[in-house]
Design a protein around this nucleic acid. Structure first.
Lengths: 243, 243
DNA sequence: TAGTGGTCTAGACCACAAA
DNA sequence: TTGTGGTCTAGACCACTAA
């Protein structure tokens, strides 16, 4: 049972936000389901209505829920347009798309930062990085390869975790108090190099959707440089634009 | 002097929102300028701090202002890198990237709507579409191909325009009163088919960034189905994510 | 009528930035 | 130390929906 930790440094609203957001993304409530009324959340989590409403406002802004005066609060129907605005975990992404996620660790070691990555992260070349390469599966079939590079100084020992069954983001928060709150990314199309093609079970030079992402913590420092190679035949991105 | 009308049916927060938003968009405050502190807005408009903060939250969500604890509230600098949030024209995009734009018309005719496009636009298959294919150049070199399909009923005669030197969006607004205010898009990576490769001056099967976009007007009807093929070696997308 | 979300208030204490 | 925004509370009244 998720509860609010009154002694935590995290704001109460943020804790409730993570609880409710997690429940929705994990499918504990289904689209169209009614959430508990505000009064009940107030009671259950012992928070003021203002704080509860602050959280619900955030979820509305993310299009995760909708509210109807006089009726209630409901889980929104997924529009699959969130891939380009919100950071979501691979597991959550797969669940959104209705696919069973899987993970294979390819590489997990400390390395000195190459020049380009050091520059992207704003650190000195040669500083220690925790590099974690993972093959991601959907329905047992290769979908993508993620090459994560974490600034080791901020999360010493991070590679000791088991990242087949637990999420890197959870470990960062739990063990190091680091929340990833922002990221910048570039999206490209590339031809698959031979080694990646083999891992992804596709022909060499097949098209890949390629993402380079620099993520920052709540302290506003860059914490991770991530490369993702998606099989183009199995993955696409959605977004909504405004005029 | 804009004031809050206490007898209006409009909520107080909404009235203040319109006042502040108008002042920012009208340039009464310039990007980087500090807004009056919350305490002063409370005083000036005789509202509670909660209500004032509700309005500021809305403006933050629109990226019109930013807030810094201990420093103040500031008018945001318009961000250029919104390729995945804001609809911008090819010409604007090129200007942002510092490249000279160019256009070659490849095809311009009325066609009956194929089934897939009809479905995406929510019209009957066979309904008349104005199809306009354009090769886009940057610095005189091919960059992308755009295949535009407009629902002709909403903009009869649209193909008579000269879309080398004028923008399709301008013509829609000027001649048909149609503003494109919203769009949904899917982003993929593909291998270039032979005919596109030739037009884009790249080898067959070279990777392309492929976008399918359905745009809607201010009247909330789908008006355009657009396919864009970008040379992957010359074009990438940028986006910012939030946790 | 009962229950829901929408609006609004007055106040408190905290964390951070700048002087 | 002062002034800023960040978080949180307890309570009030209203508007809408559904029974």
């Amino acid at each position: 049972m998720d509860r609010i930790n009154r002694t935590s440094k995290l704001p109460l609203y943020y804790q409730l936000y993570e609880i409710l957001r997690g429940d929705i993304l994990d499918g504990k409530w289904q689209p169209g389901d009614m959430l508990p009324p505000e009064s009940e959340l107030v009671e259950q989590y012992q928070l003021s209505r203002t704080t509860v409403r602050q959280v619900l406002d955030m979820l509305v802004n993310e299009s995760l829920i909708t509210r109807q005066r006089g009726r209630g609060t409901f889980v929104a129907h997924p529009t699959l347009e969130q891939g380009l605005v919100r950071i979501i975990s691979f597991t959550q992404d797969m669940r959104h798309r209705g696919l069973k996620p899987g993970t294979v660790i390819l590489f997990s070691e400390l390395i000195p930062a190459p020049k380009d990555i050091a520059q992207a992260l704003g650190i000195e070349p040669g500083e220690q990085l925790a590099r974690l390469d993972r093959l991601r599966l959907a329905e047992g079939e290769p979908l993508s390869i993620e090459e994560s590079h974490l600034v080791h100084r901020y999360c010493p020992g991070v590679l000791e975790g088991d990242y087949v069954s637990t999420s890197l983001r959870e470990a960062l928060e739990r063990d190091h108090g680091i929340r990833i709150v922002r990221a910048k990314q570039v999206i490209r199309a590339i031809s698959a190099p031979a080694n990646l093609a083999r891992l992804l079970s596709i022909p060499p030079k097949a098209p890949l959707l390629y993402i380079e992402r620099v993520s920052s913590s709540q302290h506003n420092v860059s914490i991770e440089f991530l490369r993702i190679y998606y099989r183009a035949d199995r993955y696409s991105l959605y977004s909504e634009l405004q005029g």
